[in-house]
Amino acid sequence: MQVYIAKRLLSMLPVLLLVATFVFFIVQLMPGSVIEYMFGGVAGEEGGLPPIGAEHIREELGLDLPMHVQYWNWLRRAARLDFGDSMLTREPVIQRIIDRFPRTLLLMGTALVLSIIVAIPIGVISALKQYSVLDHVVTGTSFLAISIPSFFVGLGAVYIFSSLLRWTPVGGMAPVGTTSPPLLVRMHYMILPVLVVSLRQAASFARYLRSGMLEVISKQYVSTARSKGLSEYVVVLKHALPNALIPLITIIGIRLPVIFGGSVVIERIFSWPGIGSLTLNALQQRDLTMVVGINMFFALFVLFANLLADISYALVDPRIRYG
């Protein structure tokens, strides 16, 4: 196991270097610059360029150096997980990511957990009662879930539940001006975005679990368990379900980039100050170090999450051994 983990960690390095190099050079092509943004005006749009001080800032940010020198300087720091400083606020990129990411994790993590909790019973029941009404509803919902854009669901939810019914706040994490609101207030702000994300996920997770269950139920060890006279309850929960969960773990592992990429849209709609909002702002402000840092962070996060998913197979399924 240790050897396997070490090998996997090593094989991440070329992938990370590839991502780093590609993203570093592609962002240099962006029209406009952070300096134009600082001096008012929208970055990328033509307008009066700042005459005084701009050169000084360029020097300070190291933007006057040749590109390969900039790249090398950045790479040397990145190797120590230091992705440089934000061009706009001059704070370390990694610090801003660390400030923002827990909020995204709170939102997307809660949604992920909720969707798994909802998907398990629904997936199991629709497999056991194939072609029942519930089964058809799950199939239909999962088609809708993959077809309706998340931003439309989000806007629709804000329109109905926040604007018309006034059940939930329009957006944000907490009332303006409060730093540590009580748990119930936090939940009130979280409930709508969490539901929007998790309902869509739950539908597709339930589909995967249903397929997994259908496959497992026809296996001989399930028949054996039944013929031993075990109750249906024990057969399903103890013998069939754990095996049917393996493909679901794979899917969640594969989907992680998509799930966390989705934070860009959800956080924009619900004004959630997480890493998705940070990404959009950084792009709009042409804060290049920030953009590169966020991309690197996402890549690292996903690679580690996939590694964890692979390790967790071994925990769920003792037949899987990594040499």
């Binding site: 992938v15 991502v19 980039p257 998509v258 989705g262 860009v264 996402f298 890549a299 996903v302 996939n306």
Partner: peptide, 9 residues
Amino acid sequence: GMLSLPAIV
């Protein structure tokens, strides 16, 4: 490598 990045970002 492609799959490890959030496509939208």
